[in-house]
């Protein structure tokens, strides 16, 4: 499917989002499908008739200048922002419109925020424990619930994945910035999402941390679909297979990093402003 789409893109290097096109590539196979979505902030269209789709187990990077609608795109998917018009379809036929954030989480969409948002007062372990996917997250279930051995193993494995094994009982508030970013990624992973939304994961990280984060995301993409928003072109080149360029709330171009960087419109709109080393 992915190859097929790339062929399509090769024929049409600059592809404006259009509903028919998306229909053609059959959203039966997409994990998330936005169909003509518009988000209106008092006259400012953060998303303008946007059509966008991501396949199962795909790692998609979304780039674009400030105000292009990248974060709004994630907000619409996870229910934080409501679309004025259009459809948001998750998986085969689940319409996300009108669903609450926590319902969408339960469906299997996880979100990592731009600024690391972890529970500073709680330990790393407790942060992960709260994020773990459970059958019920109601008040009484959590009041009487006990951790199972299986859950503890999962948390321990997760601690290894995110490299915080030695910090299990440290207060999350006293971690470094990069560690907080990882902790939040770890928290989202434990929710077992089939779609992971990641907003600027490497902002403020050292080169080494950035590299490791890239490897982590790539290994995760073997199991789940991931949408990453990123500014750091170095990082984009490291992880990206397909890049989507947003501008003024619509898709300007979609394809491999080289293709996107070679595109005139993209250069004009995005790369022209923010010089990117080759």
């Amino acid at each position: 499917m992915g190859g097929n789409r790339l062929c399509l893109l090769r024929k049409l290097p600059c592809w404006r989002g259009s509903a028919e096109m998306a229909e053609q590539s059959s959203f039966q196979n997409s994990i998330i499908y936005l169909d003509g979505v518009t988000v209106d902030y008092d006259g400012f269209k953060a998303l303008n008739n946007l059509t966008f789709m991501v396949d199962y187990k795909e790692l998609r990077v979304v780039i674009g200048p400030n105000g292009a609608g990248k974060t709004t795109l994630l907000d619409v998917i996870c229910g934080k922002t409501k679309a004025a018009s259009g459809r948001v379809v998750f998986g085969r036929d689940v319409d996300l419109k009108g669903k609450h954030e926590d319902e969408i989480v339960a469906l299997g969409i996880g979100r990592k925020f731009q600024a690391p948002s972890v529970y500073g007062f709680l330990s790393v372990w407790e942060n992960l424990d709260l994020s773990l996917k459970r059958s019920s997250k109601g008040v009484f279930a959590t009041l009487f619930g006990k951790s199972t051995a299986d859950e503890r193993v999962r948390i321990e494995k997760n601690l290894e994945t995110i490299g915080l094994k030695d910090y299990a009982h440290t207060r999350a508030g006293s971690l470094s910035h990069g560690q907080k970013q990882w902790l939040e990624i770890g928290m989202v992973i434990l929710q077992d999402p089939s779609l992971l939304l990641v907003d600027e994961p490497v902002a403020g990280m050292t080169d080494e941390e950035t590299e490791q984060t890239g490897q982590l995301l790539q290994s995760l993409a073997e199991k789940q679909a991931i949408i990453v928003i990123e500014h750091d072109m170095e990082f984009v080149r490291q992880i990206a297979r397909v890049v989507t360029v947003l501008h003024e709330g619509t898709v300007i171009c979609e394809g491999s990093v080289e293709k996107v960087q070679a595109d005139d419109r993209v250069r004009e709109i995005y790369l022209g402003r923010q010089k990117v080393a080759h």
């Binding site: 926590d102 989480v105 979100r111 948002s117 972890v118 007062f121 424990d129 709260l130 929710q191």
Partner: peptide
């Protein structure tokens, strides 16, 4: 665990929502 959710609400309510 509910007590830790309470503290979590204080620390980052947004995250609590997105933890389900």
């Amino acid at each position: 665990r509910a007590g830790r959710v309470l503290v979590a609400v204080r620390d980052s309510e947004k995250r609590v929502v997105f933890s389900g």
